[in-house]
């Protein structure tokens, strides 16, 4: 049977190559669920940022995708988990310009602006889990709310 269930999956994030698969998988899942082109691109970009964080700071981990349906609105949830060193100061990590290596410091904060819902759980030494959700056809969050 052809349902959104096909979008449910768990992908490893162990290498640069895996980032490419993560992006392609999220792109496919988002298209299948009915996201428009711009929202697909936002979600794939957010996934790319978060997967790279998982790889670079978490020492690798996994991404899970889960299609959602709530009151007729469809959505996609992505969960990135690693068992790395964790983040000591979440506030700081989420603020723009903060980076502990590599990027422009847009990773977490930037990804947060590209999705509708964003949740992060991290404890020093106990790994990090980032869960993001976007809904089809919903207006983007104005920046003030963030």
């Amino acid at each position: 049977m052809h349902t959104a269930a096909g979008a449910q999956a768990r992908l490893p994030i162990r290498s640069d190559m895996d980032l490419v698969w993560v992006r392609q998988h999220v792109r496919q899942a988002a298209a299948q669920i009915g996201f428009g082109l711009v929202d697909q691109t936002k979600l794939v970009t957010a996934a790319s940022e978060l997967a790279r964080n998982t790889l670079v700071y978490g020492g690798g981990g996994t991404m899970e995708t889960e299609p959602l349906a709530e009151g007729g609105t469809r959505g996609l949830r992505l969960t990135f988990s690693d068992e790395g060193p964790g983040i000591a100061d979440l506030e700081q990590a989420l603020s723009d310009g903060f980076t502990s290596g590599g990027g422009l410091g847009m990773g977490l904060g930037g990804a947060r602006r590209l999705v509708h819902e964003f949740a992060i759980e991290s404890n020093p030494g106990a790994g990090t889990t980032v869960r993001v959700t976007s809904w089809v056809g919903r207006a983007p969050r104005p920046r003030e709310e963030i």
């Binding site: 082109l37 711009v38 691109t41 936002k42 970009t45 422009l104 847009m106 930037g110 990804a111």
Partner: peptide, 14 residues
């Protein structure tokens, strides 16, 4: 640059 990419980059803060 494609429109969707441009919108995303701006949203990202780049």
């Amino acid at each position: 640059m494609r429109p969707a990419v441009a919108i995303t980059l701006v949203e990202l803060g780049l």
